[in-house]
Structure formats: C-alpha cells, structure tokens
Design a protein around this nucleic acid. Sequence first.
DNA 1: CTCACTTTAGTGGTCTGACCACACAAAGGA
DNA 2: TCCTTTGTGTGGTCAGACCACTAAAGTGAG
Lengths: 268, 268
Amino acid sequence: MTSESVSKDDDTAAGHTVNAPQGPSWKPVARSSTHELVINAIEEQITSGSLTVGDPLPSERELAAKLQVSRAAVREALRVMESLGVVVSNVGSGKSAGTFIASMPKEALTRFLRLHVALANFSIEEAIETRIQLERSSTALATGRVHDDALAGMNASLAIMDTPGVSLETFNDADTAFHVAIAHASENQLLSDLTEAIRGSLRRPILDAFHEVDDPRALMAQLQEEHHAIMQAIVDRDTDHAVQLTEDHIRSATAALPRLTQSRQERG
Amino acid sequence: MTSESVSKDDDTAAGHTVNAPQGPSWKPVARSSTHELVINAIEEQITSGSLTVGDPLPSERELAAKLQVSRAAVREALRVMESLGVVVSNVGSGKSAGTFIASMPKEALTRFLRLHVALANFSIEEAIETRIQLERSSTALATGRVHDDALAGMNASLAIMDTPGVSLETFNDADTAFHVAIAHASENQLLSDLTEAIRGSLRRPILDAFHEVDDPRALMAQLQEEHHAIMQAIVDRDTDHAVQLTEDHIRSATAALPRLTQSRQERG
DNA sequence: CTCACTTTAGTGGTCTGACCACACAAAGGA
DNA sequence: TCCTTTGTGTGGTCAGACCACTAAAGTGAG
C-alpha cells in the first residue's frame, strides 16, 4: 500500500473541513508512517478492550519484533501515547519496569491547551468564554452533589487566599484550586479536567496580566469576596445563584485584567 | 554533563492541591528526558512568540546539532508535537519541505478523547453530559451570530439526513456535521473543536448502539424532526428555545440508545 | 537458617551512522 | 522556450551499540 496520493500541495493550516458532501468523496488521507501504524496497533488494543489501565505493554524490543518495525519507530509511537497521558514508562527490572497503560489525561490536556493558546489557535477570549460555560455547568452539578470532603477542599483554598500578604502566585494557584475543587465536586471527570486544563493554560497570561494591575491587593480582595459569595451559595444549595455568581466572578476578573485579552503583539 | 541540575523549570505546576508551604519543599518531580528537553525548547519558542503558525523549524539534523542531542531524540519530540497538532512534517526538498508550526488541534483533541473514553478514564455519561453543556453554550452563541454561510452548512447536513434510505453511517456523520456546524457558527473555535472532538470520540459507540435499536428508521426520523425544530429556532433567533431543544434532543437520543451508556463489559 | 552483599538479566534512555524515498531546484539539452 | 536530467537536502526508517537503572537470583558469611 502507500501508493502515491494526490498532490495536495496547498495544505493550508487553517483547514475548516467545510465539506461539499456530494463530491466524488476522494480519498481523505491515508498516509501511514511506521510509527502511526504502531500507534494504531496499540490504540486498537485499547479500544477493543484488550488493554486497560494498569496493563503492561510488551517491551520495546519485543514490540518492535512483533510488529516487524524498528525499535525507534516503537519508541516514537510510545512517546506519542505518553504525551497523550495514555502510557507511562519505567526503567529498571522486575514487575514495575516497562511501559504500562496509564490514565493521566490532565497534564496532556493542559499542555495541549497551553500550546494552542500560545499559538493563538484558541484565543484567550475563547478560552475564557469556554471556561465560563464549563464552570457554569460544573457549579450547577456541584451544588447538587457537594459533600463534606469537597467543601473542605474549597475551604482550604479559601483559607490560603484569606492569608494576609500572600503572594500573587500563591493566591492565583489557590484561586485555581478553588475553582477546580468546585469542578471536582461535580463528579464529572471530563468537566473537571477541562476546567483545570483551561485554567492551567491561562496561568501564565493571568499572572502576567495581574502584575500590571494598578492595585493588585484590592483586586485580590474583591475576587476573594466573590469566592466567599460563591461558596455560600453552594453551601446554601442555591444553584441558580451560585451559577450566576460564578459567571459574574469570571467576567469581572477578566474585565479587571485588561492586559489579559489584549493581543500579544502589543505586549512587548 | 548530565549533572543532576535541579532543572529551573516551573512547568510542573500541574500538581493538584499542593500547598503546605512549611514543608521541606522536596523536589516534586524534576526528571527530564532528552526528548522532553527538546519539547520544552520548542515550546518555549512558541510561548515566547518566536514561533508562530506557518513558521519553519530547523531541520531535524540541524536541530539535533544545535541542541546537542541525537536526531532520534529530536524526532521523538517532533512526533509528540505532531500528535498534539502543533507541527507538521513534509518530506522532500524546497520551501515546502521540512517541519512547520501548524494548527490542527481538532484531530489531536479527537484522538485524545477517543482514547480516554475507550480507557474509561472519561465515562460515556460524562462525555454526553459535557457535550450537552458545550452544545447549549454554542447553540446560544450561534443563535445570536449565525449568518447565511453557517445556515447553508446546517441545511446541507439536514438535506443529507432527509434523503430517504440513507445509510446509518451517513446519517450519523451528517448528524455530527449538523451539530458541528452549529458549534462553528458560535465563532468560538475552542467550543467548536471540543464539540467535534467529543462527538468524534463517541462515533463508534454511537454507531454500535444504533445498530442494536429495534427500529432505527423511526429513531432517525425522530432525530431529524428534532433537528429541524432546532434549525427553525435558530433561524427564528429564539435562543432560549433553541438551547432547550438542543438539550432535549441530545438527552432523548441518548435515552433511545440504551446500549450506549451500558458498561462495556456487558456488551460481548 | 538468616541476613547482607554481589551478580545477573532485562528494562527504558540515548546515541551513532547509515540508507531510502521523496520533492524541489538548478543545470543541461532539444 | 520547453522538457529532461542531475543534484541536494528533507524527513522516514533501520540496525546496532552502549548506558543507567532496578529487581530478582545467586552467593557468601555469620
């Protein structure tokens, strides 16, 4: 296989995949490099259920021999799977050594979003708008399901932010932890991870913007006041109020950080 | 070299609920393989703005020489970046050859979600619930912004689904295209890509579940009726109605596919 | 026998050097 | 001018060799 494909020369990056579905339905794209074949082989084992979290993969040398490819190709495939948070590799010997199916989607999502936000494939405005919608949802879900452990996590973050003289970085990280704790209480892992990843991808821009605010302490105090209001609404099981406060909170914070949504070219 | 430098990086800030500032502040985890260093080097160029979409990277051999690492390590890093949809590589010679910064987040996001749904790191219920929330948001945004081109795309998908005797696969793909067209009309790329990725990650499970429905034609007719209702609400700029119809539509479709939300172990 | 130490074997991590298929660009001939 | 040929640099792939690491098997002394 791998016969020559059509000479798709103008492969502009901004593909929108707008279709014209009545066309001859040309071959979409069937290129397959060796490491892609290895990835597909592993992915098939996963989607078919033959491999689940915790299972070991064959060693790199063994996998290379079985798939009739070089070890370098296997390694490239494993690095891809690793970057997706699907496998982890441990050196050494014994049962803890080798490559295993893992479940670490958060880090992968965060890096993914951070890179694409940096590349302006996703604008900061989009990320914030999406974050608002996600957190509205997770807040609504959390308000109905929240239990003591989750409340304790939120209170811990609030306590950090209540500490006088806390550094901006610490405040910001506790801020993130507070929102993530709410998302976690929604008991929806995907929603929670997405929330954390989006917030993580914005960490650096938010900190940079925060440093340019005239009166950071006043802003921190205002944000913290809003946090306590959200917390109270959650404790009161007042879903609608909590949701509205969450959206208002994010919007007001964004508005207070004008540098955040400026185009990056202007910030020298 | 390889002096155990503590690695200045702060990128490991993805930790969860790390605080306790009075502790000895032990090194959390600072391992850095060679290909990770290459990744960080490239990522730094991107986040600093030195590399933007369309820019070429040095050739693999040149990059290896500059970073003082082997070409294999560079390739592993590039494969990771490629899997994230951040770079593309073209063989050959001339200006179109080499590795370039790209913007193809959709495919990466789709594969990511597909794998993690397959691994049950994200349950199908979670994915559907998240999808509902995302599509509520995108529908609300789209209703206010929709223009003729976007309407044309939606109508094209509706026309496919209206075709009598259309295959289940074609119907399902047009169904996805319809919802994606709505998300696209929201003019929020992240929201749109997330919608498409979630729907894409569920494609196979949905098709499998659809095949086990007693009367697929009746279900398709019902879904299509709901699609037209959503379309009408969007055309009428009736945001609240469109949002409610969208949620009802997804929930009714899910309820009509009982196999979809069953645990995968039961489906033998 | 028990315990501590040494050896061994197998893992991922890394590097080197080589060859291939490819695609464009420049040189050459009609 | 047009087409062909050659050249050059690209990513793609491979084989083979070390290294660092770790757990388990082996070994010896007490």
